[in-house]
Design a protein around this nucleic acid. Structure first.
Length: 430
RNA sequence: GGGGAGAUUCCAGAGCGGCCAAAUGGGGCAGACUGUAAAUCUGUUGUCUUUCGACUUCGGAGGUUCGAAUCCUCCUCUCCCCA
């Protein structure tokens, strides 16, 4: 199975330029994906592009990761409906380093082979490019008419858009197009990949290559990852799902994948894991036969957690999940020794309170909304209690007057607060 | 430079000077049902208060008025059209 076929059955091809597959079959091809260094960690939205590069490398081609130091300073109009904040250079450099470390879990940068992965930063060649040089050497080849016909631009110029588009943003596709030209010349890069929203930007690049050096370059984009319910992929109420354990704990990461809806699970497992076609088909069959066991979600969560955080983190996450969602009760919680307890609740938001306050017993509303900030307001807490959504140490609280005292402490130190089904908070009395 | 439209709560978007903490939809949160899924139904969604109620909010600053999201003045910002 070649690279294109591989992506095909995984549902990772949205659009591909004619001739791309032929070229890939003909020779080892260098291809790149751009990543914006807007943060010092990748989030799971980035993984689609990363997985494309992974498959590419496995097929014997050379992956290039382009960190958009320059383009990240501009902001891609197709990404957002509004103008973006600009980043400064030290931040960009720091972010690039962190991102590379994460990418090394996926791509081989030091294989010594011809298809060893490469990372470049377009800031390096854009920073000294003068405005005059740019408009003469690049701008000259592309007409404004062509640029305006791109969807990303049209959308922003239409009257539905609430904001205008700055010249800076308008220029974005030219800068990205020039990146492609630069890599074409320097690294013999003949393929650019990305999300389908990048199609317009990528084709500006191929157009530029054709017009300036008469070269042939290709494009391949994957569909935008969506959720069946129309929500945005990779977001939870607390924001992005990051690869960095400090931003998103392994437990939360694991839970994210486990919570995937049935409709999405098959799609995600194809895109994000390296399981082969047969393995996935088997899992799908199991899912149909025993949907309550959720074989797809379980496998997906396992694979992803191992890939990003390692085996040990996976085991802790599973253990924590079983205690929190399984038949955990006040008794099981009390029986746990402290190290186990702490490892299970690693990553759960922690609040500290004064132990003294508990000696006389304290009203639960005051405890959670005043003595600690588990809840932002008393009103919200009362509503949650009234709706039966609050548990203390796995025991339902149905009265806002409930007094919490020393006897409620687990291991003489902890209180486990649960809001709804999935949100846990840990109180430490000191 | 000229003309027009606009800024309301998480978002979108209503809002005769009092009945406006502000319609409606979306989103969020919670409950029921379930499989930590989806769909559906219910509740809730400024702060404080057990209740009554009190207080702070409608771009900013002033003003008119017994009373302002609503009227007036100035300012800031945004969009559109013409030149």
């Amino acid at each position: 199975m070649n690279f294109v076929e591989e992506l095909q059955w995984r549902g990772m091809i949205h659009d591909i330029m004619p001739g791309t597959e032929e070229h890939l079959n003909k020779e080892m091809t260098t291809a790149y994906v751009g990543i914006d260094p807007t943060a010092d960690s990748l989030h799971i939205g980035h993984l689609v592009g990363v997985m494309m590069l992974k498959h590419l490398q496995q097929a014997g081609h050379r992956p290039v990761v382009l960190v958009g130091g320059a383009t990240g300073m501009i902001g891609d109009p197709s990404m957002k409906s509004a103008e973006r904040n600009l980043l400064d250079e030290p931040t960009l450099r720091h972010n690039q380093e962190s991102i590379k470390k994460q990418l090394m879990r996926f791509l081989d940068f030091n294989s010594g082979e011809a298809n060893s992965a490469v990372m470049v930063n377009n800031y390096d060649w854009m920073k000294d490019f003068s405005f005059l040089d740019f408009i003469r050497d690049v701008g000259k080849y592309i007409t404004v008419n062509y640029m305006m016909s791109k969807d990303s631009v049209k959308k922003r110029l239409s009257s539905e858009s609430r904001d205008g588009m700055s010249f800076t943003e308008f220029t974005y596709q030219l800068v990205q197009g020039y990146d492609y030209l630069h890599l074409y010349k320097e690294l013999d890069c003949k393929l650019q990949m990305g999300g389908s929203d990048q199609w317009g930007n990528i084709t500006t690049g191929t157009e530029l290559i054709r017009k300036t050096v008469g070269g042939e370059a290709y494009a391949l984009v994957c569909p935008l990852i969506t959720k069946a319910d129309g929500g945005k992929f990779g977001k939870t109420e607390s924001g992005n799902i990051w690869l960095d354990a400090a931003k998103t704990t392994p437990y939360q990461f694991y839970q994210f994948w486990l919570n995937t809806s049935d409709q999405d699970a098959e799609k995600y497992i194809k895109i994000f894991t390296l399981l082969n076609k047969q393995e996935i088909e088997t899992l799908v069959k199991e899912q149909v036969e025993a949907p309550h066991l959720r074989p797809l979600q379980n496998r997906l969560a396992n694979e992803m957690t191992i890939l990003v955080h390692g085996q040990e983190a996976l085991e802790t996450s599973i253990e924590a999940s079983q205690i929190l969602f399984g038949r955990g009760s006040t008794q099981t919680l009390k029986k746990m020794d402290e190290p186990t307890f702490l490892s299970v609740f690693e990553g759960v938001p922690i609040f500290t309170i004064e132990k003294v306050a508990l000696q006389e017993g304290v009203n639960i509303v005051d405890l959670l909304a005043e003595k600690s900030s588990v809840f932002p307001s008393k009103g919200e807490l009362r509503r949650t209690i009234a709706g039966g959504g609050l548990q203390l140490n796995k025991e339902k609280i149905d009265n806002g007057d409930r007094l919490v005292g020393m006897g409620d402490l687990l291991n003489d130190k902890y209180l486990l607060v649960q809001k709804g089904k999935k949100s846990f908070y840990l109180l430490i009395a000191e």
